[in-house]
Design a binder for these strands. Structure first.
Lengths: 124, 124
DNA sequence: CCGCATTGACTACAAGTGTAATCTTAAATA
DNA sequence: TATTTAAGATTACACTTGTAGTCAATGCGG
């Protein structure tokens, strides 16, 4: 999986939200979360292109950008890497950590139960 | 929370396994997972000291090192940050991602169920 | 038609990171 | 005791990252 830096990932996230997108439109979207300097955002966008995480097509004098990797794939791969680093690759200890520190709300529990139910539906 | 780089984290992980520990002992432990150059490991250890993630006490000619941050705290903080970056801070979508990509095994499900049961025991 | 604004291309630059080598000192060994 | 060795301290160095600035071309408004 392509290495994406922290800030590059923020840009990629904005691109996943909607694409293809012009740079200016993307920057507008980025600015809804926090202030971004146009030049900084464009640098990151270009680095993502160089890393082949993002592609683009000419549209008149400017470009339309789009992700070359799926958010789902990226997220799962990052998740696995994260679990490997801190929890021996296991999911449960992460959840247990949240539980122990009172960071699990009933809503989270309900969602987990639903996921489990679906899983069992399919696998039993 | 202190910023710890990827390789620094590997060293820290080895230190969490057992401490206090001499540098050489720590390096021995690190080498059980993958080959580490002694100099590299020591550099990282020193950077962790500089970042105040690791402390040490003199023991004769050399030092004994120990973590200054708890693994549990670090793990939870990293977990929250991770969820924020990719899943809008929610736990369930991460688990759902694993489920969708067939990465949840029955063992994981059972462990999750147990965690949920414990949570409900305490919170209902 | 021309200067202005916009877009992408290229450049900048310090701090952080991965990966080690060299220097210094003190301890262990021959 | 003279010497090799092992620890920590210091130095090295290229690459990445965060954060922009400057340059060049092109299309737009007047």
């Amino acid at each position: 999986m392509i290495e994406v830096s922290k800030t590059e990932e923020e840009v990629l996230n904005a691109l996943w939200q909607a694409h293809p997108t012009s740079a200016s439109e993307l920057i507008t979207r980025l600015n809804q979360t926090k202030p971004w300097h146009e030049k900084t955002a464009k640098t990151l966008l270009n680095r993502l292109v160089k890393k082949q995480a993002v592609g683009f097509e000419k549209q008149g004098r400017s470009y339309l950008y789009f992700p070359l990797i799926e958010k789902q794939d990226y997220a799962v791969s990052q998740s696995q890497g994260f679990l490997d680093r801190l929890f021996n690759g296991k999911l449960a200890p992460l959840v247990a950590g949240f539980s122990k520190t009172e960071q699990l709300k009933r809503e989270d529990i309900d969602e987990l139960k639903q996921i489990i139910k679906d899983w069992e539906q399919k696998n039993d």
